[in-house]
Design a protein around this nucleic acid. Structure first.
Lengths: 338, 338
DNA sequence: TTGTAGGCGTTATCAG
DNA sequence: CTGATAACGCCTACAA
């Protein structure tokens, strides 16, 4: 049988209260007894039962991270990078991370609340920025500590952290404009998601500010993967669109776009320039186009977790909406190989 | 304050024992009292405190999944797909999954054992197939229920599940041979990992069986990502290697390889044929070569979890080493777009 | 600085 | 079929 606090106490000839004190290294224990206890713990190979600790403290020491189908899709798998950031914060604090696969937050928020009420986790990080208010309201009403990595509907008092998606495509498009391009197309991800909408807005903003009009036939959207990029390009060409450059939602799509262009005999860059926004801090681009905007997902994860702990520890914490700056990384065609 | 089993008992005018019985739907409760209790639970919005349940049952209801740097790398991120399979098994059983980021199992196995002794998890799935015996021995000695997704050193009595990696490259290479190729190169991932070694062996086996000799200058290895594939090709050419086809470790590498070939002016396929093994059940290939071997990682995850539960529930369970069959998927160059 | 004792919410073992 | 009641391992006033 595994040694308990009692065994340690009797071996060290002290009370269990004293053992508990050194276990949680409180300072009201004499050095001598402390040593005695530690010796006993060592001899018995004593390991505190965290299940008991969690029970008596009423703290699960578990952080839930909800990942939707976007996160589970290997194609746009920012979630792993996000988790790296989360771990950086949770691990030192003795918290573990449980993953909640939820294909649809709208459907599953009830079980999220139930899980919280059963003490299955202490706080939750959402990565499924649904535009529906109801899930958030229910979470709030149940007083579930929650932070969102992404965006949240207007008027919902929940802290969020996200990349500055508007700026991403804004900067990218502006870069193309500065190079002299005037007919710039945009290939976007699904505008069902915030990200998709925001990145589209960044493109529009840059175009408008340049005094140009936004041609509807130059703007298409599709799924945020390779195939989506390829299809989008076909769609652009099918409508007889005329452009010298394309701003693309993300890297996988950009790769598809470039492939499509080449299949049609275009030179890239040359006939057409392509710029993509990159979700990951690695060189995934097969055909780096002009340059790429890099977002720091890992940092998003880190800050998300930090905010959650503030809410956990500090009780009432301020609601903040953080936009992380983006890095504009210019890549040469062979930079990847350096 | 949250309602407890006591509140329910007093409202329903029964003992807490009875409430506990209906909670765990035992059959020794009269229908009438059962209804009374359920009504009370409903009225109080009672949710059992799982922390108390876990404590008294001495079961954490948590499965740990250890992911090493390979899993954390977005490039070869089979881990998400693996987890999908794991969830399929854990969720219905009321288990949650905690992620243990471990860059090096050799270093961290001690904390794994400690965590187990503290009841932080009930069983662990390893995805870091180190060739070092010690970590496994320590886990076994501590009687930690463990299943490995991958391979395990000779003589270690731990159940494993993996794809048939030898067969993967064997089939791929054989396919190239059947097409008439005689000078076939191999670009592999790091042979530090089992997978790397096994896939290399599959290639060798096919070449040997065809009565050909394995030319060392036709075999190179590098990191299992895009850049690794690109570098490998450079290395092949630098040595003046002469080949008409290449068998590549995985998709990201294959993409790099193809890019390298094209940069040098080769037609692919045409001058050189490339075949890659795919870790994921999605079309990630930018330039699908001849065909690709697809491995069912999600199924690996599912079976891994099932085996773990057998060990958990059934006590002593048989040690098995399962090799999952691979699908040979022939892809046309435009299949992705279909 | 230390010990005593009560309590956390459930489960499980007895009697009845 | 139901009810007391003793665990489970640890924490924390409160007392000494």
């Amino acid at each position: 049988m595994k040694a308990t606090i009692k065994d340690v106490a009797s071996l060290a000839k002290v009370s269990i209260a004293t053992v508990s004190r050194v276990l949680n290294n409180q300072d009201n224990v004499s050095l001598e007894t402390k040593r005695k206890v530690q010796l006993a713990m060592h001899k018995l190979d004593y390991q505190p039962n965290v299940l008991a600790q969690r029970f008596v403290r009423n703290i699960s020491h578990l952080i839930a991270v909800v990942i939707d189908e976007r996160g589970m899709t290997a194609m746009d798998q920012f979630i792993l990078v996000l988790l790296q950031g989360v771990f950086k914060v949770t691990k030192p604090r003795g918290y573990d991370v449980i993953l909640i696969p939820g294909t649809d937050l709208d459907v599953n928020y009830k079980s999220l609340v139930a899980m919280f009420n059963q003490n299955m986790y202490d706080g939750v990080i959402l990565t499924s920025p649904t535009k529906n208010q109801l899930p958030y309201l229910n979470l709030l009403q149940a007083k579930v500590p929650v932070v969102v990595s992404g965006r949240v509907p207007e008027g919902i008092p929940i802290s969020t952290i996200d990349n500055d998606n508007v700026k991403a495509t804004y900067v990218a498009t502006k870069y193309l404009l500065e190079l002299g391009h005037r007919r710039i197309a945009y290939i976007g991800g699904p505008s069902y998601y915030w990200v998709g909408e925001e990145r589209l807005n960044g493109y529009k903003k840059a175009i408008s500010e340049a005094g140009l009009t936004i041609s509807p036939e130059l703007v298409v959207e599709d799924s945020f993967d390779f195939a989506g990029g390829y299809r989008s390009l076909q769609q652009l060409l099918a409508c007889g669109a005329d452009f010298t450059a394309i701003c693309v939602y993300n890297d996988p799509m950009a790769i598809g776009t470039i492939k499509g262009l080449k299949d049609r005999g275009y030179k890239v860059p040359g006939d057409v320039s392509v710029i993509g926004c990159d979700n990951l801090p690695i060189g995934m681009m097969v055909e780096p186009a002009l340059s790429t905007i890099q977002s720091n997902i890992s940092q998003v994860g880190e800050i998300t977790a930090k905010l959650l702990f503030e809410a956990l520890e500090g009780g009432e914490s301020e609601v903040t909406h953080n936009l992380l700056p983006l890095e504009l990384v210019k890549r040469e065609s062979c930079r990847i190989l350096a």
